[in-house]
Design a protein around this nucleic acid. Structure first.
Lengths: 118, 118
DNA sequence: TAAACACATGAACATATATTCATATGTTAG
DNA sequence: CTAACATATGAATATATGTTCATGTGTTTA
C-alpha cells in the first residue's frame, strides 16, 4: 500500500496511473463539456426540443416558447456556433433546424434518465 | 398564410400548434437541462470520465485531476444530488462510482459529436 | 481520549452567462 | 428610394455558479 498524507500524495497510486493513461485528454473533455453546457440551458434545450419536431423561424420560436425575439436570436447564435443548428434564409425569414445526428440521441438518453425515477 | 407582426402574433401558426402539442413539457425539459448542465462543467465531466474507468476516492480524484479536495467534494455533492454517482464508505475513505447506465451513452455520444469535425 | 486523517460544508469572492434594451443589418413591398 | 418587417448584435445588468478558505463531521489509531 501507499498511504501518505492526502495533500502530499495519494492513496491508490496504481489506480490513478491506470486511469490517467486510459482517460480522455483535457482538450476533448473541455470540448465535450462545452457541448453539454450548451444543452444545459432551459431555453436552448426548449429550442432544440422544438426543432426536433420541425424547422422553425425565429419569430415562431419566440411565440412558441414565449421568449423575446432577441433572447431567441442570442441563443440560436450559441447553438449555431456549436453547430447544433443550421439555417436557411427565405426572404426575410430565417429557418432553423437541427444540424447533428447525435442531438436526438443525447436528447432521448437524457429523457430516459430523468424518466427513470421520481 | 397567416402573416402578421411578429411582436403580436406568428408566421406559421399551424407549425406552432403542432409542435406545442408534441413537444415535451417545460418541467421535463428543465430537468433534462439540469442534467446537461451538471455534465457541462469541465471538472465534473473529468470526474465522470475518471469514474467511467474505475471507482475512486476523493483523495485520488483530487490528485488525478489536480483539483483541490474541497472543490472535488463540492462537485461530487452536485453529482450525487443528480444521482449520477453513488458512494460507499470504507473506514475513513469514501469511494465514488457512477450510478447510472445512461451516463456512458451520453458520454460516448458527446465524444462522437466532437470527434466528427475539427 | 486525543491526535490524525479523509471528507463535507458554509461563506465569500470572482467569473460566467442569460436576458433586456437599444439599435444595426438585410430583405421585401409600395 | 423609403417604409416595414424579420433577424442580429453590442452593451449593460442581474443572477448563477465554481473555487478558495476556514472549519466542521466522522472514523481510525496510538
Amino acid at each position: 500500500m501507499d498511504i501518505e498524507k492526502c495533500d502530499v500524495t495519494v492513496i491508490h497510486e496504481e489506480t490513478i496511473e491506470k486511469v490517467k493513461k486510459d482517460m480522455l485528454g483535457n482538450e476533448e473533455l473541455t470540448e465535450m463539456a462545452e457541448l453539454f453546457k450548451v444543452l444545459g440551458d432551459p431555453t436552448r434545450l426548449r429550442i432544440v426540443s422544438a426543432l426536433l419536431l420541425s424547422e422553425m423561424c425565429v419569430c415562431d420560436l419566440s411565440a412558441l416558447l414565449d421568449v423575446s425575439q432577441s433572447a431567441i436570436s442570442h441563443q440560436l447564435r450559441i447553438l449555431k456556433q456549436t453547430r447544433l443548428v443550421k439555417y436557411r434564409r427565405e426572404g426575410k425569414v430565417v429557418y432553423y433546424s437541427l444540424d447533428d445526428e447525435h442531438i436526438e440521441t443525447l436528447f432521448l438518453t437524457s429523457y430516459a434518465h430523468i424518466s427513470e425515477r421520481g
